[in-house]
Nucleic acid binder design. Structure first.
Length: 848
DNA sequence: CGTACTAGTCTTTTT
DNA sequence: GACTAGTACG
């Protein structure tokens, strides 16, 4: 019995087909990694393929690492010469050898998003582009999309005839590329684009890699963009032994250029391709799979397939709707806690998935309270944190002084009294002489304009030169510690009263540990190599499954992972599917969201829980959301029937076990100020959104007139806010002109569902009056709110002399409440931090 | 040159 | 609510 006998018929077929183009359509959990690793083993063992000739490409380092590990396990001898890596690091490796062939120095630096943004800013200033009109963000994404499609600045320009806006973008694109090149730098997209460029302009280089990579495999093929596809196509064009594995139903990266046609049209580009479908799922129970199938079948743009499993039905899928997001978080935390206590699950068996990173905060707070260990994947990338970037900038400067951005970043960190004026003078000199910024620093004596202020530069240059000298005999760890020590970086943090100084110091400690780990795993660890590896790390890469912790992450980050217990939080229209996609003109936008839902559901092996909240705070404003359409796409019989369920008669209306219905939700939303969510320093929703706004009244509410109802909780008490009036008028007007985006909120108008028919609520003359002018009688629907807010004359639920609690400052006594122009100014004597004066709306004070 | 405050933006997702 | 860039002031 060989290892290949454990494969099913389809899998075996995929493993044995090693010659020619192969498209493996691998459904979620169908064992594609297994197929890939066995396929590699088969090539080497049975077909005598030289491991040296095999290339396997993935998207993340984590995936590459896992594949490497599994290949090592089954291949044994020779596996180390198989090239397993990500698109980006593959390209870096190639470019490190040949970048000089296309006009770069082989020691080019890699810019991250932050760096790119700085360059864009610089370019805009130089070209006098108004960044109010052309946002850096949108410029960046326009340039990035162009690169994803392999459109050069010149080509871009050709397509801008008659379009002034586009011409501007073209200009910026051209100048941006020029600047990158001048700095000998490439951004993420360039790594792919420049490699393609290299292959196209240097046939000898291409040929050498074609000879090297006779067998190519690409994982997560549905996520490739045009540039990546072209790269693979070029490499494979000689021997045509290209095997791509993917699942069009899991294509969720359109926003960063993934071209779903790469997988849908594979057979057009490679007509002789063999197509193999893997439809047997080994991961999930039948119920979970059925739910996933029922959701994804609503998409039009897909290859038909049907996942099946031999596993039993399993538990029903749990669904729970809560009044608030606090209660949702509370439930998830306590449910996991319960499972752990009952021995049903370990922490590491559980994952909580959500649509947006911001949703993690509430969950985290609750997890801390319940004492449940967790890890959050994503958010701000570890290596993008300020303190880490600072240390890295030092290391980059030491490694090679060519990275001007890095040098400028740290020249005055910690403070050395070197300001913008000095920096500009040095930069001018560098530009005039065509040298790098750091080289100009070293020749500062020659810079006449510097004058006396130049003295301040000396210690910096001396320090860097000293580091460089030490680098010769220091280990990486010693060097990093020396940098931290000599610069006084941590010392400064310790002395600062910065609230998150401790976090920053911890991060730096963690960074040192990472350096040590790197040195341990790399025989001759060089600074350059370390910096390079660090530049290409994704968040998910750092996830360590050995830790017994619950994992919190976005649905995107969860792709490729599996867990026995999965919670999908925030299953609400407006959150997931996101507001953007619901209101989008592009009907395929919602399909991408649905694929995301499919990915989420299929992460679960045994137990899936869907949760949502009627009300949650988004960006400081309270939103009321309906249950996600994706939940409604799951057949009722698959859902836990002890919970509120949809009545089939009318699918536009949710009717719950307690008889309450969705359409009455304005009254139905119970505004409890006690109970569930009040326990945490967080205030109850009514008061936390008190005055939310510099009058953002109705901004995010759906359909003006009624929107008033939704946001009243926030705006009513803020009578003073209305005093200003202007904002109210503005946002209300906006609502009218832009129409109510959420068809779901059309109050029983029955248009829930497809985002086409937008029902615009009609406003009466009375409703058109500013809210406050209508008098309290029109607040009938929201009386609960007033009570909930403890509607005293000030609208605050505390008064002078009361003891209150603040989220950050702890407990204290209110010594004064003064009516300010906008809001009440509250003065509190805190027990630990002394007196603070703050605005009531933002202070989040809670009476004790 | 550095700080402290203000106004504006944002959030959908990230290699 | 959080963050950031820009500005005014010391």
């Amino acid at each position: 019995m060989s290892i290949y006998d454990t494969l099913n018929a389809r899998q075996k077929e995929a493993v044995l087909q090693i010659n020619g183009p192969v498209l493996i359509l691998a459904g979620a959990g169908s064992g594609k990694t297994r197929v890939l690793t066995h396929r590699i083993a088969y090539m080497i063992e049975k077909e005598g393929v030289n491991p040296w000739n095999i290339l396997a490409i993935t998207f993340t380092n984590k995936a590459a690492g896992e594949m490497r590990e599994r290949v090592d396990d089954i291949v044994g001898f020779g596996s180390e010469s198989i090239w397993v890596s990500t698109f980006h690091s593959t390209c870096v490796r190639i470019l490190r050898r040949y970048a000089d062939r296309i006009g770069y120095d082989n020691s080019f630096t890699i810019y991250d998003t932050d760096d790119s943004k700085n360059i864009i800013k610089e370019v805009c200033k130089r070209l006098q582009v108004d960044t109010k009109l052309y946002k850096e963000r949108s410029l960046m994404s326009a340039i990035s999309s162009a690169k994803d499609e392999l459109i050069s600045p010149t080509e871009f320009e050709l397509n801008t005839i008659g379009d002034f806006g586009k011409r501007k973008i073209a200009e910026v694109y051209r100048e941006y590329q020029k600047t990158l090149k001048k700095n000998n730098a490439m951004d993420f997209d360039d790594l792919i684009v420049k490699t393609v460029e290299l292959f196209k302009s240097c046939p000898d280089v291409l040929n050498s890699y074609q000879e090297r990579f006779k067998y190519i495999m690409v994982d997560e093929y549905q996520d490739t963009n045009t540039a990546q596809f072209e790269l693979v196509r070029l490499l494979a064009s000689k021997y045509r032994n290209l095997c791509v594995v993917g699942d069009d139903d899991q294509s969720i990266y359109k926003f960063r250029g993934a071209n779903i046609n790469n997988i849908l049209d594979f057979e057009k580009v490679f007509p002789e391709a063999k197509v193999i479908k893997l439809e047997q799922n080994y991961r999930s129970t039948q119920n979970i799979l059925s739910a996933a199938n029922n959701v994804i079948r609503n998409n039009m743009e897909r290859k038909e397939k049907a996942l099946w499993t031999e596993k039993g039905e399993g538990d029903q899928i749990h669904f729970r709707q809560f009044d608030t997001a606090y209660e949702e978080a509370e439930f998830i935390a306590s449910d996991i806690g319960k499972k752990k206590r009952n021995g049903l699950a370990d922490y590491k068996d559980c994952a909580v998935l959500y649509r947006t990173n911001a949703q993690s905060r509430l969950l985290e707070e609750r997890f801390i309270m319940e004492g449940i260990p967790y890890d959050v994947v994503g958010g701000v990338n570890f290596y993008s944190r300020k303190e880490i970037k600072d240390i890295l900038a030092y290391l980059k400067t030491i490694d090679n002084g060519k990275d001007d951005l890095a040098v400028k970043r740290i020249i005055n960190v910690p403070r050395r009294g070197i300001g913008a004026a000095t920096i500009n003078k040095v930069q001018d000199y560098a530009d005039e002489n065509g040298i790098s910024f750091y080289d100009a620093l070293r020749r500062k004596e020659e810079i006449a304009s510097l004058g006396r202020s130049g003295v301040k530069l000396d210690p910096f240059v001396t320090m860097i030169q000293a580091f460089r000298a030490k680098m010769e005999y220091f280990s990486l760890e010693e060097l990093v510690n020396d940098v931290i020590e000599t610069t006084g970086y941590v010392k400064e943090l310790k002395e600062s009263d910065d609230e998150d100084a401790d976090d920053r110091i911890n991060n730096i400690d963690e960074f040192v540990s990472k350096v040590v780990a790197y040195e341990e795993s790399h025989e001759e660890a060089s600074l350059s190599e370390f910096l390079e590896e660090v530049a290409l790390v994704a968040d998910i890469d750092g996830v360590d499954s050995d830790n017994n912790k619950v994992l919190l992450m976005t649905l995107h980050s969860a792709k490729g992972l599996e867990f026995p217990f999965v919670y999908l939080a925030g299953m609400e229209d407006g959150i997931f599917p996101s507001y953007m996609t619901i209101t989008s003109d592009d009907p395929t936008a919602i399909e991408e969201e649905r694929r995301l839902a499919y990915v989420g559901i299929t992460r679960a092996k045994e137990d899936l829980t869907l949760t949502c909240a009627r009300m949650r705070m988004i960006r400081g404003e309270t939103q009321y959301n309906m249950v996600s359409r994706f939940v409604k796409e799951i057949p009722e019989k698959l859902l836990d029937n002890s919970l509120p369920v949809v009545k089939k008669k009318d699918k536009d209306e949710f009717v719950y076990a307690d008889g309450s219905a969705e359409k009455n939700r304005f009254q139905a939303v119970p505004f409890k100020t006690t109970g569930g969510f009040s326990g945490f320093g967080q205030t109850a929703p009514g008061s936390s959104s008190f005055g939310a706004g510099k009058g953002s009244f109705g901004k995010n509410s759906f359909g003006s007139g009624f929107g008033a109802g939704t946001n009243t909780g926030s705006s009513f008490g803020a009578g003073n806010t209305f005093g200003s009036g202007s904002n109210f008028g503005r946002s209300a007007k906006k609502e009218e002109t832009e129409a109510a985006p959420f068809t779901g909120y059309s109050y029983g108008a029955g248009s829930y569902g497809r985002p086409r028919a937008v029902v615009k609520p009609k406003r009466t003359a009375e409703e058109n009056k500013p809210f406050i002018a209508r008098g309290l009688s029109s607040l009938d629907g929201v009386q609960g709110l007033q009570k909930g807010m403890g509607n005293s004359p000030t609208g605050l639920d505390y008064k002078e002399g009361d003891r209150v609690r603040h989220l950050k400052y702890g407990e204290g006594t209110v010594s004064a409440i003064v009516e300010g122009p906008r809001d009440y100014q509250v003065t509190v004597q805190f027990d630990s931090v002394g007196q603070k004066i703050m605005y009531a709306a933002f202070a989040k004070l809670k009476k004790i």
